[in-house]
């Protein structure tokens, strides 16, 4: 079921400040460029309409067809950049009054899975949060080299074993979690520590698909 938030239809977003509302009204009528761009498509449409009235087959030029295909790509979207009719229509509307923002629906990300963490995982999450906090304060020595090595080794073992046994999950929770440089340095360090060359990694990945 949707959350109550998701089912709230036809809300109107209220302007945040009177200033932004004024800006909205001032900028609304600008649609002329789109109308101009659509002139060619209008010509094609007129030709088609004239032929339709006479019930004769329509001979379209190559250019007309390009405009039609563009229109197909643009779909029926009245906002499409080559959609002349629609742009003209919206321009008229905009002159009359500033467009209202109507919230049709909100679709939240999936409801959080309150997955139970075991005691060790809870400790791990709390410890990681502590480390992140210390790092944010610039405490580069928050974790000693020995502690870092021990943690890295344990994580390597447990992650590797899970992947091999088919319990696959990404090693990081999201792309924003670490920088590319962090990944390069860490991967390089791991390979060096295990006396592996980059080509060996590539070969192994090709063979195993992991």
């Amino acid at each position: 079921m949707s959350s109550p938030k998701a089912r709230a239809p036809k809300q109107t977003a209220k302007s945040a400040t009177p200033k932004s509302a004024a800006k909205t009204a001032a900028k609304a009528p600008a649609k002329k460029t789109a109308v101009k761009k659509a002139a060619a498509k209008k010509v094609a449409a007129k030709k088609v309409a004239a032929k339709r009235r006479s019930n004769e087959p329509v001979a379209l030029s190559g250019e007309d067809k390009v405009h039609f295909v563009k229109a197909i790509w643009e779909g029926v979207s009245k906002g499409g950049k080559d959609s002349g009719k629609a742009s003209a229509k919206s321009a008229k509307t905009a002159k009359a009054k500033a467009p209202q923002v109507e919230i049709l629906r909100r679709i939240p990300a999936a409801a959080p899975q309150n997955k139970k963490q075991n005691a060790l995982s809870q400790k791990g999450l709390a410890f990681a949060a502590e480390l992140e906090a210390a790092f944010a304060k610039g405490e580069l020595e928050a974790l000693s080299p020995e502690a870092t090595q021990a943690l890295m080794g344990a994580i390597c073992k447990i992650y590797g074993a899970n992947q091999e046994s088919g319990n696959k999950y990404p090693i990081l929770s999201g792309r924003m979690a670490v920088t590319g440089t962090d990944v390069m340095i860490t991967c390089g360090g791991l390979l060096k520590a295990a006396d592996l060359q980059v080509f060996e990694l590539g070969m192994w990945q090709s063979w195993t698909g992991i």
């Binding site: 079921m1 949707s2 998701a6 679709i107 990300a109 999936a110 409801a111 696959k168 999950y169």
Partner: peptide, 16 residues
């Protein structure tokens, strides 16, 4: 309603 997407990720969509 939740639908299952890539790698078991759950994505919420409106009921039909």
């Amino acid at each position: 309603m939740d639908l299952i997407s890539d790698r078991g990720r759950r994505v919420q969509v409106e009921e039909l």
